[in-house]
Structure formats: C-alpha cells, structure tokens
Simulated assay, not measured.
Amino acid sequence: MEVITTTVTNFDLHDIARVSRTYNLSKYYIVNHLESQQDFVKKMQDYWSSDFGAEYNSDRQEAFKVVEVKPDLKAVLNEIESKTGKQPVIIATDARKYDNTISYKKLRNNIAKQQRPYLILLGTGWGLTQEIIEDADYILEPIYGNGDYNHLSVRSAASIILDRLVGEEWWI
C-alpha cells in the first residue's frame, strides 16, 4: 500500500492520445508531479507538432492536440471547472468493486443525459491511491475477461472503457 510514482511511457502516451482523439474527448490529462515526466510529455507534444513530426505523421499531431500534462489532480479539476463552469463527476477505475461502483451501462446513460463534465481516472503501476478512490464520485466496475487473469495495460483499459462509455452502439 505504498504510494509510488510511475513514469509516463511512450506507448501509453501515444496510444491513449489516439484513442482519446478517436472518441472525441476534449482532453487527455497526464498527471505526474515529477518535472522530468512533465518535460517528457511536452517534448513528445513539441516533436509531433513540429514541422518534421507533423509531416512525418499528421495523425499523431492530431492526436496530441488533446494531451495536457498537469502536476496534480487539483490542477486538472481547476482547469475543467474554469473551462466549463462546472465541477466534473469524478470516476475512478479499479480492479475491485466498491459500494459506489457504477456499471458501464448506467454511466454511459448518465454521460449521454447530463450536462456536466466527466473525468475518468486511470492509474498505472499499482493503480490509483486509496485517497483518490475514496474521493471519487463513482468507481467504474472492473473490466472482466472470460478467464481468471485480470491485469490489463492502462492503454488497453482506456480503449475498452472509452468504447463502452462513448463508442458506437454496435449492439443495436
């Protein structure tokens, strides 16, 4: 139960930016208090928005438009409230169920009907801190496969979660 800081990985940064842009999210926030990690994210943003990066892969440039790096969650919450005039509904993710666990179906319906912003928090390493879990409005139900192994990468989880919450209603 120790709190650790994980590094931002190139794969997670690119893949979650791409899925965020694909599902038309307004922002994909990277939260990391280490200046070196913030600099890494900014360096990647600068590269893909540069002349060479944009020419080499304009799709990547487009994906990085939604990326924003912040030192802590409070800065994210302040920015969202400043831009929207509303506090976001905070949805944490975890591989366990809690008393305030919400289903994908219910959250999808809430997102479609409500005019409040939603902030979905994903963790890497050992996941989100207990404090963040306790402060969240809801905990999204875990992603279950059909086997007994349950340890997805954050970029895989992000893709599944976004498809379930805001993706096309393919089942209709």
Rank of each mutant, 00 (worst) to 15 (best):
M1H: 01
I4E: 09
I4S: 10
V8A: 02
V8S: 06
V8K: 10
N10S: 09
H14K: 09
H14Q: 12
I16N: 04
R18A: 03
V19R: 04
V19P: 02
S20M: 06
Y23G: 07
L25M: 10
L25V: 07
K27F: 04
N32L: 03
N32D: 03
H33M: 11
L34I: 12
E35Q: 05
D39R: 12
F40I: 09
D46F: 07
Y47M: 12
S49M: 09
S50M: 09
S50V: 01
F52D: 15
A54E: 12
E55H: 13
D59L: 08
A63N: 05
V66R: 06
V66P: 00
K70D: 00
V76G: 00
I80G: 09
I91P: 05
I91Y: 01
A92R: 00
D94Q: 02
D94S: 14
A95H: 04
Y98V: 11
D99I: 08
D99S: 10
T101I: 07
T101K: 03
K106P: 08
K106L: 11
N109D: 15
N110Q: 15
I111Y: 06
I111A: 07
I111C: 09
A112D: 08
K113W: 10
K113Y: 00
K113M: 12
R116T: 15
Y118N: 00
L122C: 05
L122R: 05
T124H: 03
G127D: 05
L128S: 01
I132S: 12
E134W: 09
A136I: 03
D137V: 07
Y144H: 11
Y144F: 05
Y144C: 00
G145N: 09
G145A: 11
N146L: 13
G147R: 10
H151W: 09
S153M: 13
R155M: 04
S159P: 08
I161G: 07
I161R: 06
R164T: 07
V166Q: 02
V166D: 01
E168P: 00
E168V: 10
E169K: 13
